[in-house]
């Protein structure tokens, strides 16, 4: 018990508003510096993939870590955002940012729609329903050939239009660094807004639902409505990630949004630490970079990757956030002793 109290005290210190401000300042500095340090195409590409995965992970964490809804179909919302925005751009020549808004809205509505039915389900049943939804979405993308071109894919998707002010190009998104700044900036903004939300009464409400729905209802909490809300927000963020992915890679195939992708995102959230927002950020970065770093090992890298995952789940179930807390707590105790 006393250990938890120590952890709480330490966390209390670490999350004071000044510490948070410094944290965001550091994040901005890191985002600005990264593409300057990693200056080859390969790593700059990975950086943007990291930023996209961070979006996916914090969106899923909002649903899973805060509202406690076991969503195994996050890849579906990712894919819907990507395909809806791309099809609007390619087929109807809709301007990029308008298509972006439409993709985000569509993914968010799909999440809302799914959860309207799924709120009655809990645990395993919700997991199966959301997984089923992801399979259906993948099958539609694969088989509605007249619309999506199925497994042939959509090629030559343009990056977002350059940001031009008074005839001067501020940012040309054909440039990898500019694209990274765009996605990382959006991810940072999403993180900031989600963080504000979970530190408001909304965070308490979602946590209450996660812990005990009957108890939550006895405090006036409409659990069904809040679960739909969490799904809507989390899937909309996945939709944004999808829009960025399509315009970044320039190619869309349904298999990018197969259910294995949902499990990848889930692994990022778990390895990072569910129910903290910062954990899944690091989880996403680690699980994006690790396979690349291990590429030299050939097929062995999958073994190492799998072993690392198993290790985390078995020995640090709270993920990297828990590990960081344990270290911080120890430091705090030493300092106050």
């Amino acid at each position: 018990m006393s250990e938890t109290v120590f952890a709480q005290q330490w966390l209390g210190k670490a999350t004071s508003s000044r510490a948070r401000f410094l944290g965001y300042l550091t994040a901005v500095a890191v985002i600005v510096t990264l593409p300057l340090v990693f200056n080859d195409t390969y790593w700059r590409t990975n950086l943007t993939v990291c930023a996209i995965n961070v979006l996916l992970a914090i969106g899923l964490d909002f649903i899973l870590g805060y509202a406690g809804q076991l969503n195994l179909g996050h890849s579906a919302f990712y894919g819907l955002g990507a395909y809806v925005s791309t099809l609007l751009i390619v087929k109807l020549a809709v301007p990029f940012w308008l298509a972006f808004v439409a993709g985000v809205a569509f993914a968010g509505l799909a999440g809302t729609f799914l959860s309207l039915f799924a709120v009655r389900l809990r645990g395993h049943y919700l997991a199966i329903a959301s997984l089923g939804f992801a399979v259906i979405v993948h099958q539609i993308l694969l088989n509605w050939i007249s619309l999506t071109q199925g497994p042939l894919g959509i090629y030559g998707i343009a990056p977002p239009p350059a940001l031009v002010v008074d005839g001067t190009v501020i940012a040309d998104f054909r440039n990898l660094t500019a694209f990274f700044y765009l996605v990382a900036g959006f991810a940072l903004l999403s993180f900031l807004l989600l963080s504000q939300l979970v530190r408001s009464p909304v965070g308490e409400t979602l946590t209450a639902i996660r812990e005990d729905e009957v108890s939550a209802a006895s405090l006036g909490i409409n659990a069904a409505a809040w679960k739909v809300f969490a799904f809507g927000v989390g899937s909309a963020i996945a939709g944004a990630a999808g829009c960025f992915y399509a315009s970044f890679v320039g190619t869309l195939v349904p298999d990018a949004f197969f259910i294995t992708e949902a499990f990848n995102i889930l692994a990022m959230v778990i390895v990072g630490g569910m129910g903290t927002l910062i954990g899944p950020v690091f989880g996403a970065v680690l699980l994006t970079i690790l396979p690349e770093v291990l590429r030299g090992l050939g097929d062995l890298r999958l073994v190492v990757y799998g072993a690392a995952l198993t290790f985390v789940v078995l020995f640090i179930p709270g993920g990297m956030a828990q590990a960081a807390n344990a270290v911080g707590e120890r430091l705090w105790r030493r300092r106050s002793a």
């Binding site: 946590t207 209450a208 812990e211 108890s215 006036g220």
Partner: peptide, 18 residues
């Protein structure tokens, strides 16, 4: 049926929902 992982204070604060 308390929210076992939340502190005593946070349990009470959750009660202010309405």
């Amino acid at each position: 049926r308390l929210f076992r992982q939340l502190t005593a204070l946070d349990n009470v604060i959750a009660g202010f929902h309405v």
